[in-house]
Design a protein around this nucleic acid. Sequence first.
DNA 1: AGTGAAAAGGCTTTAAC
DNA 2: GTTAAAGCCTTTTCACT
Lengths: 156, 156
Amino acid sequence: MNLDKFDLAILKVLQENARASLNDIGTAVGLSSTPCWNRIKRMEAAGVIRGYTVDIDPASLGFMDTVIVHVTLESHSEETLYEFGRALAAIPEVLEAFLVSGDYDYYIRIAVRDTRDYERLLREQLYRIPGIRHSKSCFVLRRLKETMLPLTGPVG
Amino acid sequence: MNLDKFDLAILKVLQENARASLNDIGTAVGLSSTPCWNRIKRMEAAGVIRGYTVDIDPASLGFMDTVIVHVTLESHSEETLYEFGRALAAIPEVLEAFLVSGDYDYYIRIAVRDTRDYERLLREQLYRIPGIRHSKSCFVLRRLKETMLPLTGPVG
DNA sequence: AGTGAAAAGGCTTTAAC
DNA sequence: GTTAAAGCCTTTTCACT
């Protein structure tokens, strides 16, 4: 799908506030509300916009720490990789899971209550998944940037 | 701030669709729209809800690959760490940046157009930041889980 | 605390340019 | 592909439980 500068501008507004009204979006991008609405519906239908979500403060939910875990598996068969991914997806504390190239097989980011909760999670959840060989963790000391796609560049 | 099961249920609905109407939210959680509205405003004011954002398909924007980069710095002084973080935050392709404990100093996730774009980004952007010593990259082969906070557990 | 109704405002559609 | 206007649905307020 071809996105012009108005589409990108609309996405940028929605990225900052997904509940912005069509009037506000229109004012921000220099259009009236109707074309904005049409463009949004078009992007939703085309799968450019996958959905709208809320940004929740992890600490408010009791998750005081973020841990990044690197995992290697016993086998690299498609079945093992798939099964491991499915098991990870079922753990709510697992925020992100990526199958990666290189020294490790999976990169995972988890939200934990505290260090004891981290230890429990590793022992009772992660190491109970069949196929896991080894893991290596690092605690996040500071978060510097939120996850937002760049809306300038390749298609801008 | 104390969150009860209704608050968590509301967050869950918003996490799946941040543009859900108050009526739909109310129906889903078993309340009328007014208390839902009050609870949402309260959570916004308390910083539990940090904002609402849109989930955009990276491929639609021309970003076909995701790369995870681990970085070590020359110095671990507060100034170097801070300056590096500031420079990272200014690169739109950098989706996430975490200051971490362990073997590496920064963990970064970047969106790239293709392998050439990755090479360009590394050379022209990342390695031009003062203080960088070494980096190690791995390409994401498959993304298994989206970033969503678990809404059961510690406070549920 | 929650409910339900009423007012104010925004969303969605139709039609015209 | 854009603007303007009409009807409808949602948000927001208020009175009551």
